[in-house]
Computed example of a mutant assay.
Amino acid sequence: MDSAVNAKGKKTAIATLLLATVIAIAYLLGWSSVFVVKSLAVRGAPSTSVAAIIETRSGIHVGDKLARIETRKIQSTLSDISWLDHVNIARNWLRGSIVISVSEKSPVAKFRGHLLDEQGSEFDLPQSAKVPVPTITATTQQLAKLGLLLMYSLPEDIRSKVSGISVASRQVFSFTIAASSTREIAVEWGNLEDSEVKIKVYRTLIALPENRKIIFMDLSSPFSPIVK
């Protein structure tokens, strides 16, 4: 009988100790001043002023309880910044530090005065630097995305020289390409079909000596191209 009582008493004592430990840990993490934010840093921002904006948008302040910082929620909030490609928040419990690491989207084209990423989403970089990417002219963003489709269907050596793409409709594409430092060629591409054939015809025509001064090429019918 006594042994049963002692065993029950030990279990109660252990349970009480565990509960007290959990309460103590919860207090340390959530209410005490032991685990608080002592430093906040932003890495990957293009300037200190932009880093300050990200700090403000994060809502994190020195003195905040580390356990109460919802990293996923903050990442979601910062992801609303259009030019951000990736956001990561690292929390160091021992040092009391928070590091927000960010990276910018890479622009591939311009459209309606804004930049486009590879998915065709519009954004603006935080600093107004001149970005050497082609300008897409189209009436809708959906057509602009088709312009990106055309751009990426071109080989790198041709794509890198494209300065502008025009999408009049789903069947009518054209682009301007730099033939030299002083001459551009306007290329009527037609629709997105037979791209491989059109690329071969383009290479053949551009290599001909008699075409060294052309400024126009119509490849909409690749088997009967026109140059001027």
Rank of each mutant, 00 (worst) to 15 (best):
L154E: 01
P155H: 08
E156V: 03
E156K: 15
E156S: 05
E156Q: 10
E156D: 14
D157W: 07
D157I: 00
D157V: 03
D157M: 04
I158L: 15
I158Y: 03
R159Y: 06
S160I: 06
S160V: 04
K161P: 07
V162W: 00
V162R: 06
V162P: 11
V162Y: 06
S163G: 10
S163D: 13
S163E: 12
S163V: 15
G164K: 10
G164S: 15
I165Y: 03
I165P: 07
S166L: 07
V167W: 06
V167Q: 12
V167I: 15
V167G: 13
A168Q: 15
A168I: 09
A168K: 15
A168W: 07
A168E: 10
S169G: 04
V172I: 14
V172N: 15
F173K: 02
F173Y: 00
S174L: 02
S174K: 00
S174A: 03
S174E: 00
F175I: 04
F175E: 01
T176V: 15
I177P: 10
I177R: 14
I177C: 04
I177S: 11
A178P: 06
A179S: 13
A179H: 14
A179D: 08
S181C: 02
R183C: 09
E184M: 13
E184F: 06
E184P: 07
E184V: 11
I185K: 12
A186E: 14
A186L: 14
V187H: 05
V187A: 12
V187T: 13
V187E: 10
E188V: 06
E188I: 11
G190T: 01
G190K: 03
N191C: 02
L192P: 01
L192V: 00
E193T: 07
D194A: 08
D194M: 11
D194H: 05
D194E: 13
D194Q: 07
S195N: 15
S195A: 15
S195P: 09
S195W: 11
S195M: 13
E196N: 14
E196T: 11
E196H: 12
E196P: 08
E196S: 14
V197G: 01
K198S: 00
I199N: 09
I199G: 05
K200C: 03
V201L: 06
V201A: 03
V201N: 01
Y202V: 12
R203A: 05
R203L: 00
R203Q: 06
T204P: 04
T204E: 14
T204R: 14
L205D: 01
L205T: 00
I206S: 13
I206L: 14
I206F: 13
A207Y: 03
A207K: 13
A207C: 04
A207G: 07
L208C: 07
L208F: 10
L208Y: 06
P209Q: 10
P209M: 01
P209F: 13
E210W: 11
E210G: 06
E210C: 07
E210M: 02
N211W: 09
N211K: 11
N211C: 07
N211D: 03
R212P: 08
K213W: 11
K213R: 12
I214A: 13
I214N: 12
I214G: 12
I214K: 10
I214E: 10
I215S: 15
F216I: 02
M217C: 08
D218V: 03
L219E: 03
L219C: 01
S221F: 14
P222C: 04
P222F: 08
F223I: 09
S224V: 13
I226A: 05
V227H: 13
V227G: 08
